[in-house]
């Protein structure tokens, strides 16, 4: 597993400030979809029983149903877990020196990007929509001097607080680098 205390390229005086994930609410549509899928085998059972109550009493057909329904459920359950992993392994780590963006794409795709805090020019936050406002989650956009937006933290909790914190850290980092070292 990832050890936050042993991130690659960690400087001697670098400390982890916090790490972010998208708000858990974005899992809700997946969970609802899974519940609907889960109900399907039972719906088939009730439907068949309603149209032909003796069907599952015939030798072999109940077993066929159990075979089909069990493997259907297992694959649906695995799909739900993989969707959860896709969400769970997307993280943003903010340290005193940099911002690390780790994005999981499916099971076998993983992109890691880094941005030094002293290059951060602008950080903006956006909370849009009723549900987003009630639960206080939204997007944080981190901009460097380049044209293209470098990082977008999607659907993170408390985006206003996060953006302020990143700006503070970036300013602190620039100040620390502007002070020349004094050697006695």
């Amino acid at each position: 597993m990832i050890d936050l205390s042993k991130l690659p390229g960690t400087a001697a005086d670098e400390e982890n400030v916090f790490f972010l994930r998208s708000h858990w609410l974005i899992l809700l549509p997946i969970a609802i979809g899974f519940l609907i899928v889960l109900v399907l085998p039972f719906a088939v059972w009730f439907g068949v029983n309603a149209s032909n109550p003796e069907f599952f009493g015939t030798p072999g057909y109940a077993t066929l149903y159990v075979l089909g329904a069990s493997i259907f459920f297992l694959y649906a359950w695995l799909f739900l877990f993989q969707s959860f992993i896709d969400y769970f392994l997307d993280i943003w780590i903010i340290t005193t020196h940099r911002v690390i963006d780790i994005q999981q794409t499916g099971l076998f795709g993983r992109t890691t990007s880094e941005l030094l805090l002293d290059r951060v020019q602008d950080v903006s936050s956006e909370v849009k929509g009723f549900i987003h406002t009630i639960f206080d989650y939204g997007d944080v956009r981190v901009q460097t001097a380049g044209e293209k937006e470098r990082f977008v933290f999607e659907n993170v909790p408390h985006p206003v607080h996060v953006s302020k914190r990143i700006l503070e850290l970036a300013e602190r980092r620039r100040s620390a680098q502007a002070i020349p070292a004094v050697n006695d």
């Binding site: 990832i2 392994l89 099971l107």
Partner: peptide
Amino acid sequence: IYGILVLVTLIQMLRHGLP
């Protein structure tokens, strides 16, 4: 086949997840 997929999924979770 399901068992193989579960194994791969768990390896990814253990390798890349935060403890």
